[in-house]
């Protein structure tokens, strides 16, 4: 099928391998430049489309109806928005929703657990999302502290045949939260991790 548009230097999910994405009437296809691996998404399986500013510029996120999962592509440019929005609307019958994140720099808010993600919101806007599949372990450390440990990339991708490539930036290992919960406030002398 002929491409309505194609974009280079696009990353699939958290991968550090750049690739090219082609948008067609029937959906989209991404191909990695090094591995030649292909990811396709048929337009019938798309339930919603979102446009999000992420670290690697802009992300096209598609929520899929089939198994309620989502697929993400990072690396779009700001100017690509209108082209992508047009294809979403004209060919896939989807509105491309821009999701606003929080840039306040606060470390307090609310967490929300969704189908596939743990979301942290600051003043009702997402600060980040963590895929539940990336959480290796969680612990309750003291009455108001919860810790999450994350899978490192080797654990996430145990494929020794995969080509060695540059490390995917700094690796998040652990995150701890203070969760006030239902414990009566006032007489608190915390067990204290400090």
């Amino acid at each position: 099928m002929s491409a309505l548009a194609s974009f280079k230097n696009i990353y699939h999910g958290q991968s550090t391998e750049p690739g090219e994405i082609r948008l067609t009437h029937g959906g989209l296809a991404w191909q990695g430049t090094e591995t030649k691996a292909v990811v396709t998404v048929a337009s019938e399986s798309m339930r919603a489309a979102q446009w999000i500013r992420v670290a690697r510029s802009f992300q096209l996120r598609l929520l899929l109806s089939s198994d309620k999962r989502r697929v993400t592509f990072d690396g779009f440019h700001r100017d690509d928005h209108d082209k992508v929005a047009h294809i979403c609307k004209q060919h896939w019958d989807l509105a491309l929703d821009t999701r606003e994140l929080s840039y306040r720099g606060w470390n307090w808010g609310e967490y929300d657990i969704q189908t596939d993600d743990l979301q942290f919101l600051v003043a009702n806007k997402p600060l980040f999302e963590i895929p539940l599949s990336a959480i290796a372990n969680s612990n309750i450390a003291g009455k108001t502290e919860v810790s999450l440990e994350f899978l490192n990339p080797e654990q996430l991708k145990p494929d020794p045949a995969a080509p060695r490539r540059r490390r995917a930036g700094d690796e998040l290992v652990e995150m701890r939260f203070y969760v006030p919960g239902t414990v009566e406030r006032g007489e608190d002398d915390e067990g204290g991790e400090g």
């Binding site: 998040l172 995150m175 006030p180």
Partner: peptide, 8 residues
């Protein structure tokens, strides 16, 4: 609120 206490 819930606070992020640390990240490693």
């Amino acid at each position: 609120k819930t606070f992020i206490r640390s990240v490693t």
